[in-house]
Design a protein around this nucleic acid. Sequence first.
DNA 1: CTACTTGCAAATGCTTTGCAGGAGA
DNA 2: TCTCCTGCAAAGCATTTGCAAGTAG
Lengths: 149, 149
Amino acid sequence: MPAHGMADELHDVVEHRLRRIDQRYTAGRRAIIDLLVSAEHPVSIADIAERLPSLPRSSAYRHLVDLQAAGVVRRITANDEFTRFELDENLTGHHHHLLCVNCGKVTDITLPAGFEQDVDKAISQLADAESFEPLSHRLDVLGVCAGCQ
Amino acid sequence: MPAHGMADELHDVVEHRLRRIDQRYTAGRRAIIDLLVSAEHPVSIADIAERLPSLPRSSAYRHLVDLQAAGVVRRITANDEFTRFELDENLTGHHHHLLCVNCGKVTDITLPAGFEQDVDKAISQLADAESFEPLSHRLDVLGVCAGCQ
DNA sequence: CTACTTGCAAATGCTTTGCAGGAGA
DNA sequence: TCTCCTGCAAAGCATTTGCAAGTAG
């Protein structure tokens, strides 16, 4: 019996969170999670359809809704193109994105912890002035990726 | 003959930029610009339809495409709701947004100049490592607005 | 006159849903 | 068995587009 690797632990977490909302961790859902893990960057529905040809789009959409409800997947909006999905930050850690304005490619980046603290500090000050309660932030960089230059 | 106010200068700029791409500054387009100016925050197509009932949606969409092409309007994507539009930053100045996760309301905020420089610096360092050419950034704060608490 | 603008209606295209059969516990 | 999951086809909706008439220069 093999020891549990990172991926196995992740699957355990996903299964547990799905069960919390009376949902099951079925093959289709696991295939999506595996895809998100291996991709290492946000993927679109088109990406999923391409990599999982046997999974009907309607099922993919439904799975993604359920996985979001379970708190393991997050829907993001790149520039103004296609909706993309990634593992929730509580599984991958807080990070940001580089968005290619030409091809739409999305790359994950992690900023220095000290910088993130400065961001939160600056945000909370301004939010207070608006009586706005900040929950999280997202910092996206728009530009041209290596392949499009 | 009255002196030109801010709004008049803005309209002159819009007209000039439209002419550059062989487009005319017609009544419908001006109505949209006026709306964006007075709103002081990003507006959705639904907002436009509500405030400009006589303007057909198809025309609104087309105007917004043209105004973007002219570089006076920018399309933004709030959380994962409706597409919204605002005047381009070269007309309003660089700023960011507070996004209410409950009602979708978008509020403009301006961060300290020094902070923006730090952001750009942190970004350019990471972008270099990825051979990514940064053009701009967007920093959105997700949370709950005053009215929804 | 020539080119851009508009409205309406029809077409798109992504996403959601109704249903009926299948599967997990 | 009872509840959740799947697929397919149909429905929804925001957005785009074809066309023909209107208008700016």
